[in-house]
Design a protein around this nucleic acid. Structure first.
Lengths: 225, 225
DNA sequence: ACCTGAACACCGTTCAAGT
DNA sequence: ACCTGAACACCGTTCAAGT
């Protein structure tokens, strides 16, 4: 069927990645074991090592599978709105798959899907007028922001779920801790307890995003901002 | 000796945190087990559960212990230079302790040391002229940036070490992969391969930091920027 | 070429039992 | 009040052996 002449309908690395994706969704990253992925694909754990060097390599495959659904926003309008949209989409993508940020974080070998995304982003940044060096730095900065933010946003949820309480409860507990501090040594924490624990993460994400975009805009000549 | 009247020289939670810190430095986060921390403190693993609910709680203690060495920069000069210094120090702190960013990331319950730090930062931000809401958001943004950046920076090093190759080798390999891409479909990645893999993380960190500070400055009335 | 059984050296956590 | 032995239900990985 395929051009490479191999007839084997057997285990593909792609099939492995999909299986890992299902286990991730079901059991989270902490529950993702070689044994479970193997079972998911109808095989024993030891067999996986024929297809993959070790678990780390399986996570690389999973990483790329997570990026498979990434889409680029329409290439119309100001570069600022394009990149705002880019970051919102990327956050959504990571947020929608369980523990996705944890899988992606600190994994520097980009898979083919991420590579395609980077190419597109760099193209837009250069067209917007950024220098080569600035475009490279800006792409890195935006990716780091989104990943870092979602990691911060998603991990406590998982931890709270594991402990059996809701996100809302956890946040409220933190706010209460702030308010309960001695006002004379922690006047600012007491005063800003509500602002610090505002549960509207959407707004929080947007705030940081706008600051970064403002900062990037300042690199451009005034007529291109 | 102490005011609380307890004579027990036995295991403190503080001693546990210090032991965890030593194990972390020696074996990394992946090698940090309850059994090893117990051994480090001369006790069996099961005993730890008398002092701590579970491993998660031990990691909370470790988290706070990591923040114990944090220092605040001098409160002189422009708010911008104060917060630049703050972020540089915070990055240094995380970078100097093995896997520190991984421990800290996504752990939202702040320990006493982090609480003191937040109080100080909020105070400076408000004095600089930020509104309550903006000060809260800004503190979060800066912390998220530093943690996210160091996580990205530190994890691959650990992975490379585990695989037996140096960071330099890994980065070069990525650059080679970019350059080896077909130039017609990935012209930007090929052209910017060097910029994208610039190993000067110090400069990369500074770039993002300056963009964020620029963006924050734009929130202030012109005369206070 | 691909899969398995069995083993090795580990995990976190619980719990009855000790002192 | 604090610690232990022993057990349970897991891990990732290797390797000889199967087909």
């Amino acid at each position: 069927m395929t051009a490479d002449g191999a007839a084997s309908p057997g285990l593909t690395r792609e099939a492995l990645a999909q299986a890992a994706l299902r286990v991730l969704e079901r059991d989270g990253l902490a529950g993702l074991s070689m044994r479970k992925v193997a079972a998911e694909v109808g095989v024993k754990a030891a067999s996986l090592y024929w297809h993959v060097r070790n678990k780390e390599e399986l996570l690389d495959l999973l990483n790329d599978a997570l990026m498979a659904d990434a889409v680029a926003p329409p290439r119309t309008g100001h570069w600022r709105t394009q990149f705002r949209e880019y970051c919102l989409l990327h956050r959504r993508l990571l947020l929608d798959k369980r523990d996705a940020a944890k899988v992606v974080a600190g994994r520097l070998a980009p898979g083919p899907h991420l590579i395609a995304l980077m190419e597109d982003q760099l193209d837009r940044l250069r067209e917007a007028g950024f220098s080569d060096a600035d475009a490279a730095m800006a792409a890195y900065l935006l990716a780091a922001y989104v990943q870092g933010f979602v990691l911060q946003e998603q991990s406590p949820i998982a931890a709270a779920e594991a402990a059996g309480s809701s996100r809302r409860e956890v946040v409220d507990a933190v706010a209460d801790r702030f308010r309960a501090l001695p006002r004379d040594t922690y006047p600012n924490l007491v005063a800003l307890a509500d602002d610090l624990t505002d549960p509207d993460m959407e707004a929080r994400f947007e705030f940081g995003l706008q600051r970064i975009l403002d900062g990037l805009a300042a690199l451009l000549p005034p007529d291109r901002r």
